[in-house]
Design a protein around this nucleic acid. Sequence first.
DNA 1: AATCGTTGGAACGCAATCGTTCCGACGAAA
DNA 2: TTTCGTCGGAACGATTGCGTTCCAACGATT
Lengths: 203, 203
Amino acid sequence: MAHSSSNQQPQKPSGAAVQRPELTQALYRAFFDEWAERGYAAISLERVAKKAGAGKAAIYRRWSSKREFANEAIEDVALAVTPIPDEDSLEADIAAFLRSLAILFRHPQIRRILPDLLAERARSDELASLLETIAMARRSRAKDLLDRAIARDELPVDLDRELALDLLPSPLYWRMIVNQRRISLTELHRQAHVLAMALKAAG
Amino acid sequence: MAHSSSNQQPQKPSGAAVQRPELTQALYRAFFDEWAERGYAAISLERVAKKAGAGKAAIYRRWSSKREFANEAIEDVALAVTPIPDEDSLEADIAAFLRSLAILFRHPQIRRILPDLLAERARSDELASLLETIAMARRSRAKDLLDRAIARDELPVDLDRELALDLLPSPLYWRMIVNQRRISLTELHRQAHVLAMALKAAG
DNA sequence: AATCGTTGGAACGCAATCGTTCCGACGAAA
DNA sequence: TTTCGTCGGAACGATTGCGTTCCAACGATT
């Protein structure tokens, strides 16, 4: 009883006997759109469906909850990974690292989703594992950079790696995400120079 | 008609002909509690009232909206400001600066509210002015520190101040807030040492 | 002693969103 | 050609919180 989809608009054609991967991708995109716009906690799956030109059923047929949706959405983009720079000096390596970070931090969706992810994790740890996966990949790139510099004798073997890993990405994050300011290429290289000097003092 | 507060619990004594400042403070505290627990967007003023042992009317008599409530709550705590360190060397000054930051970043509510504030601003700019006020106060302390070092000839007069201001707080923020890791006093002083070296290279 | 306005509390109408279920239309696989 | 299950869409009951309004109880000021 109760329902009857009869007397509204003519209802557009749709449907097929197999899940359409293109629709799945469209749902991912719409999910990140919503996330950037409203924040994780305020994501409305109804809006996500509408934005993807889909029905709500298409979502719940694929994922059982918002959380699972988020998990697979992030896994999906996390596969688009990290190429590796490889220059011939510590400072040049750092500059390359910073450039790739700057590209990331300029992305309008990442500028919003990343802080929201941090805020969400600080409250609940529900998304902690998500974040950890992402962070680990990033960190390993920085570690490689340090190892190369040590092999080149540009950094001491007893380098404080923890400190170094905190030092490398943080000023750029502070400037671009926390302070929301752009950075020019020359400024970025100046930062690379200063960071190289700092690392050499981190024995 | 319609209402009647008659047949529930005996209704505790309350009321007076004058606003109670203690209640206002209790409401501020409950507001920050809620903020830390759920995030700004999800703050429920009903829960805030309950947590403060107050009625909802007590809130709406003081502030006209959640936003105004937030504004005055933050103003209220922002008055508890920033004492100034003043040591006898750049490195010692930096260490003092970092220590005061570390205390801030250890506070369980600030650990949650600060990232949430950043995430909220990245979406809407509604809270941008709040954040700007706070940031400005912090930054001026760092500026003083740099000026003293220049006067002592520990830093060059043509120091890149922008870069320096990005450099000082960011590694600690990255470690304590982004990576959620504690920091020991010796680690903190090592960071101060490295940062001093970095600044001297930021001409 | 009388006034006045705050107090905690309960209810209002409204708006969202949740996760679920149903539908007729449709197309790919068998 | 028939079967099968996905498609967009609409509705469901439940839950939540908004901002507002009413209330009787109460105590500081006058």
